[in-house]
Design a protein around this nucleic acid. Structure first.
Length: 107
DNA sequence: GTTATGACCCAAA
DNA sequence: GTTTGGGCCATAA
């Protein structure tokens, strides 16, 4: 890809997340070669156009918590989408990263 | 060019 | 468990 923009890189990575699997912001940032840029991942996803085809709902924070910073974005929607794809949440409303975190190396 | 904001992360209280 | 402060970098204005 000719675009070196972080947005393009992030979107490309998120797009690579398989169904039924989730990735953390820190992970995406690290894969994007920007380990400290986790914030941008969120900002980018928030600003993503609907045509990007990016499963932003598969992106959660390091604790497996739903993002959206609260219910403003679509906390319930994200959870619904994840469950619809096979990702189960525990009683605390968090994702079991030990079982559902995406591992690009292992695929 | 600068300023302000941010779907984060980490550490400390 | 929550709240506060600091840091990093990119986007938008």
């Amino acid at each position: 890809m000719a675009d070196n923009s972080a947005t393009q890189r992030i979107t490309a990575l998120v797009r690579k997340i398989p169904r039924g699997r989730v990735a953390t912001y820190g992970q995406i940032a690290a894969l994007a070669d920007r380990p400290r840029n986790s914030r941008q991942v969120g900002s980018v996803l928030k600003s993503l156009p609907a045509d990007s085809h990016v499963p932003w709902h598969r992106v959660v924070n390091s604790h497996g918590r739903i993002s959206g910073r609260n219910n403003s974005t679509s906390e319930g929607l994200q959870r619904c989408l994840l469950e619809s794809e096979g990702v189960q949440l525990n009683d605390a409303g968090r994702i079991d990263l030990a079982a559902f975190q995406w591992k690009p190396r292992q695929r």
